[in-house]
């Protein structure tokens, strides 16, 4: 049988892959959004694994809401991306320095 620690370590590895993706793709906002999606899927796998092994359905309900929020986030993020491309002509992070942060 597959133990709970196998699922947890798998999702930790996926989480770290998403983190490395944010490091290496930090100029491309589209790939940054995709890495965030990957991290969210890793966290959802954690929730479902605990829900299965503890026999409690609340974890799956939580994943349902995480999927909802992630879909809303992607919709607004891509809208902002389209707006950024229309105003700046590129979607590189380097040009988004208007706030001098």
């Amino acid at each position: 049988m597959v133990s709970l620690s196998d699922y947890l370590i798998l999702s930790a590895i996926i989480f770290c892959i998403g983190l490395v993706g944010i490091f290496v793709n930090r100029t491309n906002i589209i790939t940054l959004l995709m890495c965030v999606e990957l991290i969210l899927v890793a966290v959802n796998t954690n929730f479902i694994a605990f829900s299965h092994f503890l026999g409690n359905e609340a974890g799956q309900i939580f994943v349902f809401f995480i999927l909802t929020v992630a879909a809303a986030e992607v919709a607004i993020g891509l809208a902002i991306l389209t707006l950024l491309f229309r105003n700046k002509g590129t979607i590189s992070v380097d040009v988004t320095n208007s706030l001098k942060g």
Binding site: M1, V2, S3, L4, S5, L8, I9, A12, I13, F15, C16, L19, H52, F53, L54, G55
Partner: peptide, 22 residues
């Protein structure tokens, strides 16, 4: 992060003999 998570989430804490498969 992977090394730390593996140490924390390994078979000693969440193995089959600790959390039995339903």
């Amino acid at each position: 992060i992977i090394v730390e998570m593996t140490l924390v989430l390994g078979g000693n804490q969440f193995g089959l003999d600790i959390v039995t498969a339903p």
